[in-house]
Design a protein around this nucleic acid. Structure first.
Length: 787
DNA sequence: GTAGGGTTAG
């Protein structure tokens, strides 16, 4: 239609503008605005009102506001209502409420449209008080709530987390319509009450209400979050029967449901069958792949998005970054980072994700640079950086950063506290861990689920299994995660019998163990030398609970057989594995060969290990240790040469102890400590005493260098754990247990040395090495000399 | 001129 061809009536404009609004087509809308000006209708109130609504729907709230302001005293109630709902729909609650107040002050009589608009603004929980006040006013004026108003009240309460009030409104509505039912349904979902949502949906079905597209979308999203695949498929079939699968939003939600239920192939089928896909379809399918570890597929889909010119937004990039993190691929991450910069797609979520993903890729410098450039760091930014430090072995930096976070005035939430807790646990710093425990209490976080499990883990890893036990006893509602953490805690400390009886208690309380529970249990058995029990548990996990063992479970059994000096059986077991044995299994076998001096199988395991993971310096060190123990120096040299030709460096050994508020760390042959002279003389003094009283004889086969016996002995005296023990004996009082942490495994000679110290100097010593705890007491160690 | 639905993060 052209303004010049047809004489236009002012009443034509609202309907045309309505069409523009529905299509969110700003170009058309502006053109119509132009016509209106040309025709001189741009001061006709109902035309301007429609223009205001159109601009608001097209995300041009400022243009809408200008038009509204220009009307001055011509505004009618519709004008006020339009601008209020425009601001509400735009999430600008504060502005909507200001105008609502201004309108009241101006003495304009409000109607139900006004109330609905104002209530929408109160969907922001910080304005719920005003919402309540409006509710009160309406109740006074009318006995019976108008349906639109009642529905808006319902939504307002459920958005503010007041599901009971929402239900109250819902039940008070006499003539409920679809919107009432669907709003209630999505209210449950907003408040994470997914089971209730599904029950409510069934109630809707039973009452043979019209289940429309919106109801389908809602219930599918609830089923996805519950991971309820079978019901999800039922709803899918139901929707298909009614021809609703061609609905774009239903198809998108179906994909999300399948992804959240872990079924990528069903998701793919829906995607493939969609006749029309929007960019949310692509985002959903990319996110679904990334969440289900199909990282390369996610990246492949993103390439297609780019080549087909499909719209890309921050959410889509967020999922791509998840895939980059899963692949631990620095190059992909950098590519996406550049893409974000080129397209100007930055938002806080993406910046935070980049910190996280660079951390996961082991690029702590990039993570840190990214973190520093974020202008308005929120608690997620800080937490991402803390976990990046933590998962890259920089737990000390993680703790320091958590203090900076507090100083920056950031309120630590549950996730932040959990990541700080895990940093304290990996450092074994009981003091820091206890501080975080204190924060949990002060901030009023309930001791349950993830917080309780993490605290148990922290106390266990900090060497105080008693405290772990106290937490466990305190928690009333125990799930398998909690039991598993506690079983693991006992296992770490060589208290296998307690682990088993806790497992039995768990079974009798009606809980069903999973793979992780069995892993903790088998690990406990192997670390306590409970060989027959462990092998029996390995059998029952399959027969009683249909759990197909993972490679880690196989590794535990190899370890168990190795302890029983059944190295041949262990090797046969490995050969009979239904899956290709991974490095953990060969590692366990190699350990058995070392202890029982089985050179033949040891050699096979060593070669396999180096073949599978040639880039892991730890494996080379382990293999060269075993060759050294066999006295095969030629092979030791060969492994070392290979290491250096691959550019691999041995991780330097380090041990540390917490004294007062300070962590004292020692490296091999470390002379940097201020009391270094005193420490070395303490080592000689103890060594002499142990030689005399305990018959200690330095076992130089643990020195992996070719040098004279005297030089080798000197090397042993400078081992990091020995320096730490000597320092602890200088600065702590008799009778106080000594708790030491070491980043690698304890060497055999240090193990003997520590046992003797525990007997002749009468000191309990607890050492946490890379694998487990050693409790040295009265000349014995809880590991039974097998580690 | 009013209301309800789908995709991202530590």
């Amino acid at each position: 239609m052209r303004a010049s061809d047809v004489p236009l009536d002012a009443h034509t404009f609202p309907s045309v503008l309505k069409a523009c609004s529905l299509l969110a087509n700003l170009d058309c809308g502006s053109e119509v605005h132009g016509f209106a000006v040309k025709c001189g209708f741009d001061s006709t109130v109902f035309v301007v009102n429609s223009l205001v609504a159109m601009y608001a729907k097209c995300d041009r709230i400022d243009e809408a506001r200008q038009l509204f302001d220009r009307m001055i005293d011509k505004k009618d109630v519709v004008s006020w209502n339009s601008i209020i709902s425009a601001y509400s729909a735009n999430g600008q609650s504060r502005e909507a409420i200001n105008i609502f107040r201004e309108m009241n002050k101006a003495g304009v009589a409000v109607n139900s449209y006004t109330i609905v608009g104002a209530l929408q603004a109160c969907e922001d929980p910080s304005f719920v008080k005003l919402g309540e006040a409006i509710h009160g006013v309406i109740l006074k004026a009318d006995q019976q709530l108008e349906l639109y108003v009642a529905n808006a009240l319902l939504v307002m309460y459920s958005s503010c987390g007041r599901i009971d009030d929402a239900l109250g409104i819902f039940h008070g509505i006499n003539e409920k319509d679809n919107v009432s039912w669907n709003s209630m349904l999505s209210g449950f979902i907003q408040n994470e009450l997914y089971t209730e949502a599904v029950e409510f949906f069934h109630e809707m079905c039973e009452m043979s209400l019209k289940i429309d597209e919106v109801s389908h979308v809602s219930v599918l999203s609830a089923l996805g979050r519950l991971g309820n695949l079978s019901n999800g498929m039922e709803v899918h079939a139901y929707a298909a029967k009614r021809g609703l699968v061609s609905n774009l939003q239903i198809a998108n939600t179906l994909m999300d449901m399948y992804a959240k239920c872990g079924n990528v192939s069903y998701m793919g089928q829906v995607f493939f069958n969609m006749a029309y896909k929007d960019f949310i379809s692509w985002t959903t399918v990319i996110a679904g792949n990334a969440q289900n570890s199909s990282y390369s597929e996610a990246l492949e889909l993103f390439r297609k998005v780019q080549s087909e010119g499909i719209k890309v937004d921050c959410m889509m990039i967020g999922s791509i970054l998840l895939a980059c993190g899963g692949l631990k691929s620095v190059s992909h991450t950098k590519q996406i980072h550049n893409y974000i910069i080129r397209r100007g797609l930055f938002d806080l979520v993406l910046e935070n994700s980049l910190v996280d993903v660079y951390g996961e890729c082991g690029e702590i410098n990039y993570a840190s640079q990214m973190f520093e450039t974020i202008k308005n760091k929120d608690v997620v930014s800080w937490t991402s950086m803390v976990s990046s430090f933590s998962c890259n072995g920089l737990a000390n930096e993680a703790l320091k950063l958590s203090h900076r976070m507090g100083e920056a005035g950031i309120e630590l939430d549950l996730v932040a506290l959990l990541s700080v807790l895990s940093a304290s646990a990996s450092l074994s710093t009981l003091k820091a861990g206890k501080e975080v425990h204190g924060l949990f209490i002060r901030k009023g976080f309930p001791l349950e689920r993830s917080s309780a499990s993490s605290l148990i883990d922290m106390y266990a890893r900090c060497g105080t299994v008693e405290n772990a036990c106290k937490i466990f006893d305190y928690v009333g509602n125990r799930d398998i995660v909690l039991y598993t953490s506690m079983i693991n805690a006992y296992g770490m400390h060589g208290q296998g019998k307690k682990a088993i009886s806790l497992f039995e208690k768990m079974i009798s309380s009606g809980l069903v163990p999973d793979h992780i529970t069995y892993l903790a249990l088998l690990y406990s058995c192997s670390h306590s030398g409970l060989i027959n029990e462990g092998i029996e548990f390995f059998r029952t996990m399959k027969s009683d609970y249909q759990l197909e063992p993972w490679t880690e479970h196989y590794a535990c059994v190899v370890d168990l057989l190795g302890r029983a000096n059944c190295v041949d059986d262990a090797y046969n077991f490995v050969k009979d594995m239904p899956i290709e044995p991974p490095s953990v299994v060969w590692c366990a076998l190699l350990g058995a060969c070392r202890v029982h001096s089985n050179f033949e199988i040891g050699e096979i395991a060593a070669r396999k290990l180096l073949e599978l993971e040639p880039q892991n310096p730890g494996n080379h060190v382990l293999v060269s240790n075993v060759f050294a123990a066999m006295g095969r120096w030629k092979d030791v040299d060969e492994v070392r040469m290979r290491m250096s030709s691959l550019g691999l460096k041995k991780k330097p050994a380090c041990s540390w102890i917490e004294i007062g508020n300070k962590i004292h760390a020692f490296r091999v042959q470390d002379k940097s400590h201020p009391q270094s002279i005193e420490i070395y003389s303490k080592v000689s003094q103890i060594t002499e005493r142990l030689e005399k009283e305990g018959g200690y004889l330095a076992d130089t086969k643990f020195v992996l260098h070719n040098m004279t016996e005297e030089e080798k002995k000197k090397m042993l005296y400078g081992h990091s754990e020995r320096l730490t023990i000597a320092y602890a004996l200088i600065v702590t009082s008799p009778g106080v247990p000594i708790r030491i942490t070491k980043n690698l495994r304890v060497c055999g000679d240090c193990h003997t040395f520590t046992k003797l110290v525990s007997k002749f100097i009468e000191r309990e010593i607890i050492v946490r090495d890379a694998n487990r705890f050693h409790h040295f007491k009265n000349g014995r160690c809880s590991c039974g000399d097998f580690w």
